[in-house]
């Protein structure tokens, strides 16, 4: 945060730059004219973005209106794709998988974003209150969770929830039988499977993604809290404000920009989780557990491949995300003076 702030301060006009601007002394005639330089510097990066992000974005839209199969994607003599209009879209909207995967995508994002933000904020507030040693310990701990690669996360959580030797089933067996029966309707947890039904897959999935994502929120909230001048809290305390009121009236309004960015980033990340779901659900076997990303992948890379249909699903996903992104971009443009 400080990096950026100092940037803004230094970029301002009140710098102590020498009055003699170097640009006005063209003592070297060699080289490019000044106005060309930024474009030359920008060109390689712009080409990469155009070729690897913008063109594919166009192509995915184009493909979603075509029938693209094996004959169209082979390396030698590909056949031209047949234009099918909106057939791919009608196909997906009428598919049995559309509503379940849309529901899974949205419900998962809603629950995960809410839990991540709540837990992350609470941990951020906690870190701000803890003593130095204790907060260091907790930060190192949450860093370990944050740093674990998504693939490693998935296999570890799968192991923790393993039916025979998983530590979760072991601990649930410690619960007295009558209580377990009363609360869960299960008396013996030995061998209880977690990855057979959509609802329990998603339970583990949510838990795992929240576990991996709350550290980022916590550290960001902590950084935001550190930037609030302590006088404000002293004043609030003097006015007899309790901790909850202080949070609502002082902390939250001041950190609102942080929260809105964190929320949009979380929504965007949680809307398209692929790796963890692919690994938890055992690939594309469990169709009920599909979200839009996984469904798109499953259609496009099925046998035979239905790339056009996969592309149409990807377009729907991207369209939803771009609407959310619009909110984010507006927020950034509003808060970053540097961008204008």
């Amino acid at each position: 945060m400080t990096t950026h702030t100092s940037t803004a301060a230094r970029g301002g006009d009140n710098s102590s730059a020498p009055a003699r601007r170097p640009r006005q002394s063209p003592h070297r005639s060699s080289g490019l004219p000044d106005w060309v330089v930024p474009y030359v510097l920008l060109l390689p990066g712009l080409l990469v973005i155009a070729a690897l992000l913008l063109y594919p974005l166009y192509q995915i839209i184009d493909m979603s209106f075509h029938k693209v199969g094996l004959a169209q994607i082979k390396a030698i003599n590909p056949r031209p794709a047949e234009f099918v209009g909106v057939d791919n879209y009608t196909h997906i909207f009428e598919s049995d998988l559309f509503w379940p995967s849309l529901r899974n995508t949205i419900l998962f994002a809603a629950v995960t974003v809410a839990l991540t933000l709540i837990l992350g904020t609470l941990v951020g507030l906690l870190l701000n209150k803890l003593g130095k040693k204790m907060s260091m310990l907790v930060i190192v701990g949450i860093m370990a969770a944050w740093a674990t690669p998504p693939t490693a996360q998935s296999v570890v959580w799968k192991w923790i929830f393993d039916s025979d030797s998983g530590v979760v089933n072991w601990s649930l067996n410690l619960v007295p039988t009558w209580l377990s029966e009363l609360v869960f309707g299960v008396s013996d947890w030995s061998g209880h499977p977690w990855f057979n039904s959509t609802i329990t897959i998603y339970f583990v999935f949510v838990l795992m993604v929240v576990w991996g994502a709350f550290p980022f929120i916590a550290v960001s909230v902590l950084a935001g809290l550190k930037s609030i001048p302590s006088e404000l809290y002293e004043a609030a305390q003097m006015d007899g404000s309790g901790p909850f009121t202080t949070f609502r009236k002082v902390t939250f309004p001041l950190l609102k920009p942080v929260f809105s960015v964190l929320m949009v980033l979380s929504i965007i990340w949680d809307f398209k989780v692929f790796t963890q779901l692919y690994l938890l659900g055992g690939g594309t076997v469990n169709r009920d557990a599909f979200n839009l990303s996984l469904w798109s992948y499953a259609e496009a890379f099925s046998n035979p491949p239905k790339m056009g249909i996969g592309a149409a699903i990807a377009v729907v996903l991207t369209a939803i995300l771009l609407v959310i992104t619009f909110v984010y971009v507006r927020q950034i443009v509003k808060t970053e003076d540097d961008i204008r």
């Binding site: 690897l52 992000l53 594919p56 974005l57 192509q59 995915i60 493909m63 693209v68 169209q72 994607i73 965007i268 809307f271 398209k272 692929f274 990303s293 798109s296 992948y297 496009a300 790339m307 996969g310 592309a311 990807a314 377009v315 996903l317 991207t318 995300l321 771009l322 959310i324 992104t325 984010y328």
Partner: peptide, 13 residues
Amino acid sequence: MVPAEALLISLFT
């Protein structure tokens, strides 16, 4: 913000 997963198909081809 464009999901990398959405570009998978077109980058694959």
